[in-house]
C-alpha cells in the first residue's frame, strides 16, 4: 500500500491481485495503441469485427509511403519532405520548450521568492487564462501575430505555443522553486554571487528535474498541436507532422493505414522522451506539485 510495507512479507494473493490489476490496466492502456500499430502494418482491409489487433497481410508499404514522401517543387529536385516535416515538428517543439521555459523560469522564481505588488492578482489571472477556451481568442491572436509580422512563420508558431505553455509552466515551476531551501541561495550570495548568479548557478541546477518535466509538457503540447499550425504555416516544407497527418483523413477519402503509419512515426520521438524522462517525471511533478 505504501512505504510502510517495506521489508515485510506480502501475501501471495495480494501480490497476484496487484499484478492482475496492473495487467488489466496495461491491457486497457495498450489496446487502442495496438490497433493503430496493426492498421499501420496491414496490407489489406478486413471489415469484420476482430478482437486481436493483428495486422492483415503485413506490409511496410504505408510506413514507406508516409516516410518517403517527397516535396515536388516545380523546377527543383525533389526533397525528402517527410524528413523535413518531422524535423520541423521536433525543432518547433524543442524551441517551444526552450522559449516557454526561459520565459516561465524567472517569473516562477519571482513568484516563489519575492513579495511584490500585483503578485496575487497576476497568479489568479494566470490561472484564469487556462479557463478561457481558445475558440474565441484564436482570431485576435492571428491579427496580433500579423501585426508583429510573424504570421506564416515558424517563429510565430513557436511564440504562440510557448506563450500558451507559459501559464502552466509557471505554476509547475513555482511549486518546484518553493521546495528549494532559501539557504542555498543565501549561501551562494555570501559566497560571492549576485542574486541572479545565485538563481542561475544554484537554484536552477537544483530545480533541474522539475524544469525538465515542464519542458517536456511544453514540448508535447507543441508537438501534438495542429489547428494553429495548419492555419499559420504557409509552406509545405514548414508543415509539422500533425498537419500532414490531418490531410490523410479528409471527409471523402480517408487513408487510415497511412494515417496510422504516420501516427506511429510521430509517436516514436515522444515515447523516447517519455522513456528518458519517466524517472524524473515523478520527482519533477512532486517538486512542482502543480501547486495552484
Amino acid at each position: 500500500m505504501s512505504p510502510a510495507d517495506q521489508g515485510r512479507k506480502v501475501s501471495l494473493a495480494e501480490s497476484i491481485g496487484a499484478h492482475l490489476l496492473l495487467v488489466v490496466a496495461v491491457a486497457f492502456a495498450l489496446y487502442p495503441l495496438l490497433w493503430v500499430v496493426s492498421l499501420a502494418f496491414s496490407g489489406a482491409v478486413e471489415p469484420t469485427p476482430r478482437v486481436l489487433p493483428v495486422p492483415i497481410e503485413p506490409t511496410l508499404e504505408h510506413l514507406r509511403g508516409v516516410a518517403f514522401s517527397t516535396l515536388q517543387v516545380p523546377g527543383e529536385p525533389d526533397r525528402w519532405l517527410f524528413g523535413l516535416q518531422l524535423a520541423n515538428s521536433i525543432v518547433i517543439s524543442l524551441a517551444t520548450a526552450l522559449v516557454g521555459v526561459v520565459i516561465a523560469v524567472p517569473t516562477a522564481y519571482a513568484l516563489a521568492r519575492f513579495e511584490f505588488v500585483g503578485k496575487n492578482g497576476g497568479m489568479r489571472a494566470l490561472l484564469a487564462t487556462q479557463m478561457f477556451p481558445a475558440v474565441a481568442s484564436a482570431i485576435p491572436l492571428y491579427i496580433i501575430l500579423d501585426g508583429l509580422g510573424l504570421l506564416g512563420t515558424r517563429s510565430g508558431l513557436v511564440l504562440c505555443y510557448a506563450t500558451t505553455a507559459v501559464p502552466f509552466a509557471i505554476f509547475q515551476l513555482r511549486g518546484a522553486f518553493e521546495t528549494i531551501p532559501r539557504d542555498l541561495e543565501e549561501a551562494a550570495m555570501v559566497d560571492g554571487a549576485t542574486r541572479f548568479e545565485a538563481f542561475r548557478k544554484v537554484v536552477l541546477p537544483a530545480a533541474r528535474p522539475a524544469i525538465a518535466v515542464t519542458a517536456l509538457f511544453a514540448f508535447m503540447s507543441a508537438y501534438n498541436e495542429f489547428v494553429l499550425a495548419h492555419t499559420m504555416l504557409g509552406r509545405e516544407e514548414m508543415y509539422t507532422v500533425p498537419v500532414v497527418l490531418q490531410r490523410y483523413i479528409s471527409e471523402f477519402s480517408a487513408d487510415w493505414p497511412k494515417f496510422a503509419a504516420g501516427s506511429l512515426i510521430v509517436s516514436i520521438p515522444v515515447m523516447i522522451l517519455f522513456y528518458i524522462a519517466q524517472r524524473h517525471l515523478i520527482a519533477g511533478l512532486t517538486a512542482g506539485g502543480v501547486k495552484g
Partner: peptide, 18 residues
Amino acid sequence: RVLLILPWAVPSYVTALA
C-alpha cells in the same frame, strides 16, 4: 510504469480516432 504512461505520450487526436 512505462507502459501505463504510454497513453499520455501518443498524440491525443490519434488515439481519439482509434
